[in-house]
Amino acid sequence: MPLETEARAELRALVADFAPNDGQLMAALHRVQHRYGYISREALEVVAEQLEMFPAHVYGAASFYDEFRLEPPASTTIRWCSGPACRLENGNGIRDAMLAVLGFDDLGERTDDGRIEMVNGQCNGTCEQAPLVWVERPFEHERRVVGKLTAAEAIRITREIRDGESIDGGHETVF
């Protein structure tokens, strides 16, 4: 039994109401991630104990899903919509331009200072705003839709984010 730390006790309290063998792993992992921004190794162990699963099983499940993070998130995430309506509006050009501004080779990378990350996003049917990105601040549970982009506008926004300015464009939405 690992040493009981304060962090561990907090985690234990956080997931105390989940029961084993009842289809509650997804909910437990979501709750941990909502609270801490990611699912730490320690959290995986606590969830496993609570649900009477092997930690390897919990890790295996958690790592299967794109939206469960096993590392702390960047403070700002640019989520580029990869859906078809966006693709038809130069979505690929917008992606490549934003990656270039941030010095990334591909999606899924983050800046050296760990501040900014750019990831692949999935269509949620707000295609009237295509092409669009979501700018998220995971620790604040904030998400803005920045849509009807041009490549030039995408470059301006990315430079603002890179330079630490808050962007005033876009619309607040549910996180």
Binding site: T126, E128, Q129, G147, E172, V174
Partner: peptide, 11 residues
């Protein structure tokens, strides 16, 4: 709704 929010319904 998700669409209206993306278009600025909160504002």
């Amino acid at each position: 709704d998700t669409s209206s929010l993306a278009n600025g319904a909160l504002a």
